[in-house]
């Protein structure tokens, strides 16, 4: 059974807050004490990235938002037992979200819907460029969907989420060498799948 956070004495909490008032750890401490402002700060810091990560993995906006919300529910449940100085909150959140995504992906996979892309198109894009961009987004999304789960996750963690090689390897429970192998293979497959489109669609660079 997890030990109750008796070590979270007021003194330790105050010292932590003094040292890193803006750190995730400090905010989780405040959340554990019922601080709504700290909760909002954590939401502001991580919600968009969590939705993005889930969307890159699942390809569905509604499901991505469900995953992000469920991740915050888990955080709220975890807040009282959070150990400052232990695992980084960011890594913990993204690992939880990743596991939720994998569960959903395994239970009900379906092709990535592309209406999200249409919603995000720039209003001032000329029609031709917008159509090209949407074609390219569809092609990239389809190519990502054809990767294995671990290859896609590696790309999402490193390319889209900006995790370091060590962080991503730890989240995938593998070595940095294995991570590099996953990334190289994934990028080669993406290049091969998109070669036809990329010459045309990236020709405007």
């Amino acid at each position: 059974m997890a030990a109750q956070p008796d070590f979270w004495t007021a003194k330790a909490r105050a010292a932590l807050q003094a040292e890193a008032a803006e750190s995730d750890d400090a905010l989780v401490c405040q959340v554990a004490a019922g601080d709504q402002g700290a909760w909002r700060q954590l939401v502001s810091r991580h919600l968009a990235s969590l939705v993005a990560q889930a969307w890159y993995v699942l390809g569905d906006r509604a499901e991505a938002e469900d995953v992000a919300q469920e991740t915050f529910v888990r955080l709220m449940q975890k807040a009282r037992d959070w150990e400052p100085g232990g695992a980084q909150l960011r890594s913990w959140l993204y690992r939880v979200a990743l596991n939720l995504c994998i569960d959903r992906k395994r239970s009900s996979w379906r092709p990535r819907p592309l209406d999200d892309a249409a919603e995000r198109s720039d209003g001032d894009d000329p029609a031709g460029r917008m159509a090209h961009r949407m074609d390219l987004e569809r092609a990239v999304a389809a190519a990502l969907d054809r990767l294995t789960e671990r290859q896609r996750t590696a790309i999402v963690l490193v390319h889209y989420q900006g995790f370091t090689n060590y962080e991503a390897a730890e989240m995938l429970d593998t070595s940095v060498d294995a991570l590099e192998s996953l990334l190289s293979r994934a990028r080669r497959l993406l290049r091969a799948a998109l070669e036809a489109e990329s010459g045309d669609l990236l020709g405007d660079r």
């Binding site: 939401v43 919600l47 939705v51 906006r61």
Partner: peptide, 20 residues
């Protein structure tokens, strides 16, 4: 550049309100 063409949507206001 190919990967960067795929941009994730921002969280909806309803989601942000629910989580907040």
């Amino acid at each position: 550049r190919l990967l960067d063409t795929l941009r994730a949507p921002a969280p909806s206001e309803a989601l942000a309100a629910r989580v907040n």
